[in-house]
Design a protein around this nucleic acid. Structure first.
Length: 665
DNA sequence: GTAGGGTTAG
């Protein structure tokens, strides 16, 4: 009888197994254990644990080591550290700790419940261990973010002569992927072939994922193409890999291919595709995938819903993002982060701060990313004291150690507000060695506020850290240009040429009826090119009449009329003209730009929104600009326009000369 | 007889 129960359970038919078990007149411990493990192994953890209680009440059976070995994974699955600890107590009282499978299950349970330190203590006390124990420890470290420790255990395993299994390989590759350690990843890849695991789909899926995380999507694609028996996981890993490496079209193509092969997407697939569309930032496609996820009910999954919130925010539809956010019953910390960040990048500092305060009142704890989002939201809106306060409570109330990104955001916050010596002092008092982003934020602030002295100091440090970063060279040149120090501008340019640093060409995207149109600055390759340039002539006359003055100071070494021509051919002006020409009155135009919006485009777009009565939303590399009725949502709180009575100009322009500030937060 | 580790996410 018991073996039949076991057979049903092993085939995933737990219901039938239970029916059989229920009919048995005499239930011994083995029989109970069989059905308990059946529930535990089929993902019904709570049911398994309930049965243990029933067994004690009904059958006068006490759990033995076999029962415990089924109970611990069930605890791990529901993440109940409390119950896990009480089982540990039972194990101790009964002397089960010396059994290698019990200890292994304890290591696994503690690690899965987040207590990786306790897991290690038990691991270290084991006098004998198997490959399974080592696997549990490697996975435990990897899933808690201790990638180096995971790799140390892996090395120890090889040194002690254990033969790695498929599970070892998968956990190790996970650690390699997350720590971006492609060298070790490639070593493991060789090992996979030596061990004859090259045809194991799960192992190959992990390899695909590792290569994608290490930005070798090409190697991943080759593995994927050669994979004979692809599973849903293979497709998901590949699509996500494409999405995370900016290969949006490849991600979407594979999603379609999958559909043609009648493979049903799951929540993982949806997250990958939504991530790709967030990157594409086209509202029409965003709505389509949203509709698709509603029809398949996958929008109820918290991961998918969070990705949708993030996607809408990145498509400029921050209010839609908020509606989805409000409709969710279950929100993870990342859900809050996506929404707070969405508000921040759209310049809704007040809303970001309010949402953060609401979060603090609830049961979801903010994490380090939350603080990064809220501090940078404060920075975008000029809430210096608020941001400083959050930076303080992050450590003092939430015991979170600030990372380099937090320090960078703080320098941006203080510096952008013009408090440059305070920002410089902040950098010099940092407990860790300041990174590129920190000095980059400083240089950016110095450019805005024309502080050549501190700007040069920041630039020296930047080039010490990375002599070949194009973005920071451009930023430095821009700073000199702002101060009309043309001699120094030329020096930076020569330096860039000598080092062979490439400038990124300005490029804007706009979507029209299911097609994405790309415009490079000054290009004439678009079929409507002639019409667009002619239209721009007329449009310039209209905005000039409304008060727009072309920012021709931006290019100092050419004639006036040529300057104006260069300004007119900026990629976003071409994209806006194309949008106006091809959509009906009142339609909002969405533009996606690869660099930052330059001062002249910013000013021109404000006037265009006024005279054409159009809302124009521009997503640049750094934030969003909502242009409406002649003003912008950024409130000119950026290196453009007027700030506290000081006129700020982006003197060397982005598109025509491709000299463009590209600092990151 | 029943038992430990397991591929892809926001």
């Amino acid at each position: 009888m018991t073996s039949v129960v076991n057979l049903y359970a092993k085939c995933g038919m737990v219901g039938d197994a239970y029916k059989m078990f229920d009919r048995m007149p005499e239930k011994d411990l083995v029989c109970w254990n069989t059905v308990i493990s059946g529930y535990a192994q089929n993902g019904m953890s709570k049911r398994a644990l309930e049965l243990v209680l029933r067994m004690q009440e009904e059958g006068c059976n006490r759990p033995d080591s076999v029962t415990v070995v089924s109970m611990l994974p069930a605890c791990a699955a529901i993440g109940s550290l409390q119950m896990g600890k009480s089982i540990h107590g039972y194990v101790f009282r009964n002397g089960f700790e010396s059994l290698v499978n019990v200890s292994t299950a304890l290591v696994d349970m503690y690690a899965k419940c987040g207590s990786v330190g306790t897991a290690r203590l038990i691991f270290d006390k084991m006098d004998s261990m198997t490959v399974v124990s080592l696997n549990a420890m490697i996975d435990g470290y990897a899933r808690n973010g201790y990638y180096d420790e995971a790799l140390v255990i892996f090395q120890r395993m090889l040194d002690e002569g254990f033969k790695p299994t498929n599970v070892t390989i998968m956990s190790t590759l996970h650690a390699c992927a997350e720590s971006r350690n492609i060298e070790l990843g490639q070593y493991v890849h060789k090992l996979v072939n030596q061990l004859g695991l090259g045809s194991n789909v799960a192992v190959v899926n992990s390899l695909i994922s590792m290569y994608c995380k290490c930005q070798r999507v090409d190697i991943a694609a080759e593995l994927f193409e050669n994979l004979k028996e692809r599973t849903l996981v293979s497709w998901n890993a590949m699509i996500l890999g494409y999405a995370q490496n900016g290969c949006v079209m490849d991600a979407l193509t594979n999603f379609c291919k999958m559909h043609l092969q009648n493979i049903k997407p799951d929540s993982f697939t949806m997250v990958s595709v939504v991530t790709a569309l967030a990157e594409l930032s086209v509202l029409r496609q965003a709505k389509w995938i949203h509709g698709f996820s509603v029809r398949t009910c996958l929008n109820r999954n918290v991961f998918v819903a969070t990705a949708l919130v993030d996607m809408y925010a990145k498509c400029g539809a921050v209010h839609t993002a908020r509606k989805l956010f409000d409709m969710m019953d279950d929100r993870h910390v990342t859900t809050w982060n996506a929404m707070i960040d969405g508000y921040g990048t759209h310049g809704y500092g007040k809303e970001a701060v309010e949402l953060f305060e609401e979060m603090r009142k609830g049961h979801v704890e903010p994490n380090d990313i939350t603080f990064l989002c809220v501090i940078s939201a404060c920075s975008h809106s000029g809430f210096v004291e608020k941001g400083q306060n959050y930076f303080m409570i992050m450590r003092e109330v939430y015991s979170l150690e600030p990372s380099m990104d937090h320090y960078g955001a703080m320098v941006d916050l203080i510096g952008r507000a013009g408090r440059l010596s305070e920002a410089w002092k902040f950098i010099n008092n940092m407990p860790i060695k300041p990174g590129l982003n920190v000095y980059g934020a400083m240089l950016g602030a110095c450019k805005i506020h024309k502080n050549i002295d501190l700007g040069e100091k920041a630039a020296d440090k930047l080039f010490e850290l990375d002599p070949n970063d194009g973005g920071y060279h451009v930023l430095l040149a821009n700073m000199y240009a702002t101060a009309s120090m043309w001699h120094k501008v030329a020096k930076v340019r020569t330096m860039m040429e000598r080092k062979g640093i490439q400038k990124t060409p300005g490029c804007s995207l706009v979507d029209l009826r299911n097609e994405v149109h790309t415009f490079y600055s000054g290009s004439t390759s678009h079929p409507q090119s002639e019409k667009i340039y002619a239209y721009l002539e007329k449009l310039f006359d209209r905005i000039k009449a409304a008060g727009y003055i072309p920012d021709t100071d931006s290019i100092h070494d050419v004639e006036d009329d040529v300057q104006e021509q260069l300004l007119k051919s900026h990629s976003e002006k071409l994209a806006i003209a194309f949008g106006l020409l091809n959509t009906s009155a009142g339609t909002t135009i969405h533009i996606r730009k690869n660099l930052r919006v330059c001062g002249d485009c910013h000013s021109a777009t404000k006037y265009i929104s006024l005279v054409m009565k159009r809302e124009i939303i521009v997503r640049d590399m750094h934030r969003f600009h909502h242009f409406k009725d002649g003003s912008c949502s950024c409130g000119d709180y950026c290196p453009i326009g007027t700030f506290r009575g000081i006129e700020l100009r982006n003197i060397i322009c982005s598109d025509c000369q491709h000299l463009q500030p590209t600092w990151k937060n």
